[in-house]
Amino acid sequence: MKQEQTIAGPTKGKTGSQTIEHIKDGLQLTAQLILASPLKLPVKLVQGAKYVVLGLSIFDGLFKKKIDDPLKPQGDETNGT
């Protein structure tokens, strides 16, 4: 008899993009809390949070879905003349 094995991954029920978005949102929230904290935190921690925010901003800029590109022509719009 053959036995079938099923392997359940840690992201059961989520797609790859949903997992990445969840991780990105968590990192962004954590970095914002560190930067906005009224407590005196170690300098290395604050600098690390700044780099995380910078990296997430670059990631969003490169990979976000383009809804309206202002430089792209708007299809076949003619004046009808």
Rank of each mutant, 00 (worst) to 15 (best):
D25H: 12
E77A: 13
G9M: 05
S37I: 04
V53W: 01
T11Y: 14
G26Y: 00
L41N: 09
L33H: 15
M1S: 06
K12L: 14
G26S: 03
E4T: 09
T81F: 08
D60A: 11
D60R: 09
T19Y: 09
I58E: 07
D76A: 06
T6G: 02
I67C: 09
P70C: 02
P10H: 10
Q3F: 13
L54T: 09
L39H: 09
Q3I: 13
K14W: 13
V43D: 14
G48M: 03
A31I: 07
K64I: 01
G16D: 15
T11M: 10
L45R: 01
T30P: 00
T30D: 07
E21S: 11
L45G: 00
K65V: 04
A49N: 05
L71R: 09
G16V: 06
Q47L: 13
S37F: 05
D60C: 06
S17I: 03
I23N: 04
D69I: 00
S17V: 09
V46A: 08
S37L: 04
K50P: 15
K12I: 06
F59P: 00
T11H: 11
V43N: 12
L56I: 14
S57T: 07
G80E: 07
F63D: 01
D68R: 05
G9Q: 04
L27Q: 08
V52P: 00
V53D: 10
P70L: 02
Q18L: 08
A49M: 07
L39Y: 09
G48Q: 07
V53R: 04
Q28A: 10
A36V: 01
S57C: 00
S57W: 02
Q47M: 14
V43Q: 14
P70A: 03
P42M: 00
D68M: 07
Y51L: 15
L41W: 08
N79L: 10
S37Q: 01
T30Q: 11
K44H: 11
G13H: 08
T81H: 05
E21L: 03
L35V: 09
I58T: 11
T81Q: 05
K44V: 13
A8K: 15
L29E: 10
G9A: 02
V53N: 01
I67Y: 14
K24G: 00
K24A: 11
Q3Y: 13
M1T: 12
G48E: 03
H22R: 08
V52I: 15
Q28F: 01
M1Q: 08
K64D: 03
A49I: 05
G61S: 05
G16C: 04
